[in-house]
Design a protein around this nucleic acid. Sequence first.
DNA 1: CAGTATCCATCAGGATACTG
DNA 2: CAGTATCCTGATGGATACTG
Lengths: 110, 110
Amino acid sequence: MDTPIDQEGKLKCSIEYTLKKIGGKWKTVILWHLGTDGTLRYNGLRRLLPGVAHKVLSQQLKELEEDGFINRTQYDTIPPKVEYSMTELGMTLMPILKQMHAWGKEHGEF
Amino acid sequence: MDTPIDQEGKLKCSIEYTLKKIGGKWKTVILWHLGTDGTLRYNGLRRLLPGVAHKVLSQQLKELEEDGFINRTQYDTIPPKVEYSMTELGMTLMPILKQMHAWGKEHGEF
DNA sequence: CAGTATCCATCAGGATACTG
DNA sequence: CAGTATCCTGATGGATACTG
């Protein structure tokens, strides 16, 4: 195997890196919805995530945006309208999400 | 898409379920090592996870064992010897881990 | 060697209220 | 509608010391 620990012993395992990016409690679910449903508005997303708090959702969205996984498009209308969608980079995560979704479906109590 | 939110609105998304199982800070890395290196002893595992604290490692190992992902084989010798290895169920996670590893390797700073 | 036991720090995550 | 702003809590993770 190619060891995930580098020679200098400083860098982390690449799996750790991935987990750090999408390990937030809601991030995988958000990405999954955006990847499968396409573009979604803020409250639309909220409705898909029962129980998520305002602050938490906007926080996770901001992080995902900063990491370049999602686009945030703001329309300066009244009332305001904001749309979220996947970026190219975000789409590269879909294989992982698909596997996670399939595994959970197979092994969870659903 | 098959909506991950069930009709009663009670169950979680299957992705959430998966994340809950392997979302611990070290779990994916532990599983990855056991899945690729095969059987490992406690301190061998420790050496592969620079920075992990005793308590944390044993904790995560216990949870992984309780979830049925890994086997714990104890030899009552002196000094004691404990071996960890993947279960069949644990191996079903490998596709996810492989994807995460590949993604991290491609997009992280390695 | 392979762990517990303790005690502590941090912070992600949450409830609620307010705002442009 | 789509957010901040506050304030708060609990689970997770960590350092260190002790044990069979």
